[in-house]
């Protein structure tokens, strides 16, 4: 299974990562190689086999809807690159 250069660029857009042309070339060959290796999957007959998302037989884990103490705001904002008026600050989205 080969992945095209355009597909690499498209997926990079989805992943919010940018690559220069050399990196795209390298990724194209590396990802193609991994996907070719993964073709081993398609040799296995999985007709009617249920997928396993999680190995523990856990269904929904519920707890009581009780408010517990939250982290203090100043603790939370200590790691934030930019804050203002009790919120995380990001560049303007709407012109």
């Amino acid at each position: 299974m080969k992945i095209s250069k355009d597909e690499v660029k498209y997926v990079a857009g989805l992943a919010r990562i940018s690559f220069d042309e050399d990196e795209i070339d390298k990724l194209q060959s590396e990802l193609s190689a991994v996907l070719e290796y993964a073709d081993a999957l398609n040799k296995v007959d999985t007709e009617g086999v249920a997928p396993t998302e999680h190995i523990l037989p856990i269904k929904n884990v519920f707890r009581k809807d009780e408010a517990k103490e939250s982290l203090p705001l100043e603790e939370v904002f200590k790691n934030a690159p930019d804050t203002e008026a009790g919120g995380f600050k990001v560049p303007k989205v709407i012109e």
């Binding site: 997926v11 989805l14 990802l31 999957l41 398609n42 296995v44 999985t46 249920a50 396993t52």
Partner: peptide, 26 residues
């Protein structure tokens, strides 16, 4: 991240991610 984003992207989900989870069962 690129491989995972590709495997989860529309059109490839069944071929890669779902198939992998079926192999997991096996």
């Amino acid at each position: 991240i690129m491989l995972g984003t590709y495997a989860l992207s529309s059109g490839y989900y069944d071929a890669f991610y779902k198939k992998a989870m079926q192999i997991r069962t096996l």
